[in-house]
Design a protein around this nucleic acid. Sequence first.
DNA 1: CGAATAGTGTCTGTTAGACATTATCGA
DNA 2: TCGATAATGTCTAACAGACACTATTCG
Lengths: 253, 253
Amino acid sequence: MSKFTYEHPRPIVTVDVVLFTVVDEPTGGLSLRCKPSVEKRLKVALVPRAVEPFPGVLALPGTYLRIDEETGDEIDDDLEAAAARCLRQKCGLDGVFLEQLKTYSGPKRDPRGLAVTTAYYALVSPTVFDKCAAAINLADAVGLTDVPFDHAGIVADGVARIRGKATYTTLPAMLVPKRFTLLELEKVYEAVLGRPIQTSFFRKKMMELVVQRRSGKTVPFLRETDWVEPGAGRPARLYEKATDELIIFPQRF
Amino acid sequence: MSKFTYEHPRPIVTVDVVLFTVVDEPTGGLSLRCKPSVEKRLKVALVPRAVEPFPGVLALPGTYLRIDEETGDEIDDDLEAAAARCLRQKCGLDGVFLEQLKTYSGPKRDPRGLAVTTAYYALVSPTVFDKCAAAINLADAVGLTDVPFDHAGIVADGVARIRGKATYTTLPAMLVPKRFTLLELEKVYEAVLGRPIQTSFFRKKMMELVVQRRSGKTVPFLRETDWVEPGAGRPARLYEKATDELIIFPQRF
DNA sequence: CGAATAGTGTCTGTTAGACATTATCGA
DNA sequence: TCGATAATGTCTAACAGACACTATTCG
């Protein structure tokens, strides 16, 4: 116990992960939109806290930065590795899109004293998310309250970040399954942006978006497949992404 | 000595500041541009390191997060306060624009072991910068090398960040003195962006940019003054900012 | 055939970008 | 008046945004 001594005090260092996904929302009867299909809704994952403070309360999945080499436990190479481990251990997710959001600090944000937490945000398609049967709750990402610490602010920052990036990158495409229809992708963009966008403009932009291959050749970001998604009307063509990387648009969206 | 003991090891927590400014660069004889006046160059502040490792080597100004209440020294409320203190103590600067950039971590970035450093970036006009007579060196911000740790990468990230923000905010306006000409502001934008921009388009956009007052009224971001800057030809009108806050453009730039 | 959904085409007002022109100073 | 720099106007091609139209399936 108490084996690690330093000349100066050091803060607690943790990571928190804002895990976003989308869920289908049956179009409410009150909706006046002509567009049929389903609406999508941006959600954030919350897990019950295992330890003090706030045990049992739903909060962002988080963990200490593990650098103790003597325990035999897996140690974290850096903060991003800790966030990835958190996703793996608490959500059963691996290989999902993960980027640093911001670092939060201050004496008031944690009752244990001055804590430094680096928040990451992650995006996962509902298909993959459903596979992890862990005890994960989904809450509306927009306007989230009733979470401990400063997690509401962190989620709000995360929403702002992905909203900003959605206007000039393919970031929302991280939220669709391997094969998807263009309308589905549009709905996901709308869920992230929180506002409707124009179908024909969206399709035009998306279809002419190209990605640079390592060889220097450019290929379309969206690859048409032979498959279709049957529905009530004309079946929709299914597409695949040419890459899982984040692509930046030549001009803003 | 060694008064602080913890059950688990904790990393070193520091902040580093990427302090940007611009300097006038006499247009080289090789320049083919018709535009006269002076070019501006984006610079970053480096200070000689006071302590191990790399004592004496030029590096980003940085400091430990101070949370030791017993020393009688000033303690930091949070990371941003530490960055502000660093600017004050090492550069003699106070009240400059300061925002969080990113947090860096990993066992390889510091010979002392796993260190976590949160980088901030700050912008200051050359007028204010010149007042702080401290031993501060200015290096070209673009393509900086020959700095210890991962500071080259941090500066590169900082340049990328302010370049991005320059296209949709008034961030480069943080780099001009209280009164400035439109051409001067344009040159600063060009220094940040690293590419020339169109004079007439720039002026049009800038002049029609408005800021929301607390009362709800909108006023132009640029306020015309009665003063002019004499030069070789027609004198240029001097402008003032209506606010010191960062303004976001309605549409991208 | 008609309802329902997928996907495309067309028109228009706005605007970025290039370039020419005018304005105002000192010598 | 000329040289130099500041500032504005004009033209064009591209494009966002709105809307109408065509296409394809099922019952």
